[in-house]
Simulated scan of single mutants.
Amino acid sequence: MIPTYDKVHNHFKLNNKSYNRDELKEVAYSFIKEGSPSEKALGDFLADWLDAKDYIKSKTSGTTGKPKIIKIKKQAMVYSAIATGNYFGLKPKDRALHCLPTQFIAGKMMLVRAIILGLQVDVIEPGTTLNFSSKKHYHFAAMIPMQVQQNLKKLTHIKTLIVGGAPMSSELIDQLQPLQTKVYATYGMTETITHIAIKKLNNFTNSESVSNTYYEVLPSIHISQDERECLVIEAPKLSKEKITTNDVVKLHSEKTFEWLGRFDNVINSGGIKFFPEQIEEKLKGKISNRFFIASEEDDKLGEKLILVLEAVKNDLSNTVFKDLDAYEKPKKIYTVSKFSETTSGKIQRLQTIAAINN
């Protein structure tokens, strides 16, 4: 029987304490009035989740267009929590680690999973370097790549880890291979109530590897492509409408796909299409500063590839580009002292380029 959003599982615990619905409202109020900024965000969400409305409001990240505020049905969030629980075999009383900002959908859903599935969740400060007890072992956690990178030695305390928010570098994926922790990349967005697809990153069988493992959609999710070859998602339990993304993908089956890059980042240079994300992947580990690939107008090519470097000056040698194909090499390098960023730390490419031009 599917629980309704107004129920709190009798095995749910928050920071080692059990709460019913009314007690949880008091906890939310306490966080809002007396908590740290991250605790206040947690309290705000709990108050929204426990109020009389059947929806919450959340800001989208821009995967399907310009960022906007949307209403998400609470019961749809319940379905999402159950789908994740079923996929990873989560059971009541399993221990979960919550280390993501609750302002964003991924952080909200960690709490919903705990409340609905009866998990015992420990909430810690959502920083880069995480402070959690080495004496505890967790069945489930979610992180962003930067947290994974900074806390590799602590991951042994986590059985299953999902990673989202940004692509992971091949260098970081290599560092995951010796771990017994099962690590998965996730694909999703606010509109799909976090992830709708999972990609295995380590603990491979003899026939598996990172290169031949693709995103696999969760049950009841259907995928296709539009005329741009962008991913189209049908998730009846999560959204009444089809969700058309700006992510260019290659479908490998009815249930699996490979992410190629953002349609709004695609560069057409001399009739050849380039995905900046794929070139950036080849350069990761070779450039210590933050950077990204973009384009500018060119009389002959239409667009030419450029590299934007977060640095005071350009001191890159040509050897950095030795693994790139001839057409992939940037025709020009620009430097900027500080990239423009979103509140969640994602680089704003267009704003950064605009600052260079100005």
Rank of each mutant, 00 (worst) to 15 (best):
Y29W: 06
T335P: 03
S133R: 05
Y184H: 05
L46Q: 07
H98P: 00
S170A: 14
D299P: 09
K40A: 12
T156M: 09
T343R: 13
E39V: 08
K300M: 10
Y187F: 12
S239K: 04
K59W: 09
I115N: 01
A185Y: 00
T128I: 15
F132I: 11
F275A: 08
D323F: 07
A197Q: 01
L176N: 01
Q147D: 07
E254A: 13
S344C: 03
S169L: 10
I356D: 00
P167I: 03
P92V: 06
G165F: 03
Q103S: 15
T256H: 02
S269P: 11
T128P: 05
N10H: 14
K300P: 03
F140K: 06
D122E: 12
L172N: 08
F31N: 05
H157I: 05
D6G: 06
R262I: 02
Y5S: 14
Y138C: 08
G85Y: 03
E26H: 12
E328N: 01
L307G: 07
S80A: 13
H9D: 13
G62W: 05
T84W: 00
G35K: 11
H11F: 04
Y184M: 04
Q103E: 14
D315Q: 13
K240D: 12
K136G: 08
Q150S: 15
N357E: 12
L24S: 08
T342N: 07
D22A: 14
E125N: 15
V232L: 02
K66T: 14
L161D: 05
F274D: 02
T181K: 04
H98T: 02
E241L: 06
K237T: 07
S207V: 12
R113Q: 14
K153N: 15
I243T: 08
D298M: 06
F274P: 02
S224G: 12
I173K: 02
M110E: 15
I267S: 13
L155G: 10
N202T: 05
N318K: 12
L350Q: 12
